[in-house]
């Protein structure tokens, strides 16, 4: 076992706190932006922060201490029990692509809103009400 893997397993609790903590922090910062900020672009940034937080959470959940990347390459054909869980990684790839599409769509809507209203303040967009 190499030196750095020992160090990782030694600091495993700290690592967990860092990964999960930053994921939760990202989600909370994003939520704050979505709920409090008034600028349309900041809302979109908030949404994409939330997405990143959830993605980080997914990758963190799939991690197994001292295990390697889930790739079957020459010399590693029988190493399945030494690999981290590949499913969350596949899910995150999909979620990243979807998040990208949503962000692009949102930004294009922001541009269109700005052209019509000449403002990016969400409080001044109130033509549609209950």
């Amino acid at each position: 076992m190499s030196n750095y893997q020992e160090i990782i397993s030694q600091y495993r609790p700290l690592l967990e706190i860092i990964v999960y903590g930053s994921a939760v922090a990202l989600i909370l910062i994003g939520l704050y932006a979505v709920l409090v900020k008034k600028h349309l672009v900041k809302l979109v940034i908030g949404l994409s922060l939330i997405d990143s937080g959830v993605n980080l959470l997914f990758v963190g959940v799939g991690y197994v201490t001292n295990h390697t990347a889930p790739i079957f390459s020459p010399g590693f054909e029988t190493a399945a029990d030494k690999m981290v869980d590949p499913v969350p990684q596949a899910l995150v790839l999909t979620a990243i692509v979807i998040g990208f599409a949503v962000t692009a769509l949102a930004l294009s809507l922001v541009i269109r809103l700005y052209r019509h209203h000449k403002t990016a303040n969400v409080e001044q967009l109130n033509r549609l009400r209950w």
């Binding site: 349309l40 959830v54 809103l113």
Partner: peptide
């Protein structure tokens, strides 16, 4: 038009929270 963009943006905010 402006109402279309506004409705779309509203839908997008709620829709992406739902997906999260």
């Amino acid at each position: 038009d402006r109402d279309g963009a506004e409705a779309g943006f509203k839908y997008m905010l709620l829709g992406s929270m739902a997906s999260v």
